[in-house]
Design a protein around this nucleic acid. Structure first.
Lengths: 141, 141
DNA sequence: ATAAAGCCTGACATCATGTCAGGGTCAAGA
DNA sequence: TCTTGACCCTGACATGATGTCAGGCTTTAT
């Protein structure tokens, strides 16, 4: 399929698809006589993965590592395992931090009566100097 | 305190602290006669928040909104509430997606035992249609 | 056969960050 | 007091991720 189709199906812009090809994150697809790139279902899946991972905050570099987890068949499985576990660990920490932040936001929302009166306890308590952010997510201090 | 101290205490580079000042994400601190910037505890808290949020994948723009949630006392609380809930929702989805990805990685690691390439559940879970793990802030329809 | 729509490459733009350079400032010791 | 190393300031250049626009072919539908 053409790049436009691939872009639409994956949510990755044509611009970025070409970019990912240039930096080697995805293999260069076959070209037709016209010079048009021709994508396969596998390419689409790879792009979808990249899009999802990107959404989740992974850097291009990390995505490259993740992709290798299952695309490099010659890799020693012990190495694969270590990498996967390291990533999982990292994700675990991120999940916790996000969940904590979310809880704080929910709490903030709950304590706002939500009417026209601009009165929000938490905001009030935080606009002072001592504000210490009642948000203790990720306090690695 | 000087910018170097502030940077060390917050994990935000001096370069970025100055940058955030320039784009208005943090207020311009007082200057000493020497021209040195002088940061307060409040500034440090703000920077810490920014660092954490950035780490969690929020864009500078989103962080600006988040900061306003508790720094703008004149905002109607209904608006504050809506924004907070929207963010919380977004975070909830992100948490789920990350948790799922983490689970896949753990599973991958577990099924990674011999010299054969292990089954890879990641492909299936991550290369599907972008519906369940898509985040609104990236789209506008 | 034409026009509309799609693809190609390449250049320029922006944003978040880093790093280096040239030049003041501070603080502690000789 | 003078020296020196650690710090700060501004500004410029670098890079990676993305967007958009331009000029020029290719496909497709009318």
């Amino acid at each position: 399929m053409n790049i436009g189709d691939a872009a639409q199906r994956t949510g990755v812009s044509q611009r970025m698809i070409r970019h990912y090809e240039k930096i080697g994150l995805i293999p260069a697809p076959l070209r037709r006589d016209s010079g048009y790139r021709d994508y396969s279902v596998a390419d689409v899946n790879r792009l979808r993965f990249i899009a999802n991972a990107r959404d989740l905050g992974f850097s291009i570099e990390e995505i490259g590592e993740l992709l290798e987890l299952w695309s490099d068949e010659h890799r020693a499985s012990a190495e694969v395992k270590a990498l996967a576990l390291a990533k999982a660990d990292e994700l675990g920490r991120k999940v916790e931090a996000l969940a904590a932040m979310r809880a704080s936001l929910v709490h903030l929302a709950r304590t706002c009566h939500g009417d026209d009166r601009p009165e929000c306890p938490i905001i009030d308590s935080m606009s002072g100097e001592r504000t210490a952010m009642t948000f203790e997510f990720a306090e690695d201090d």
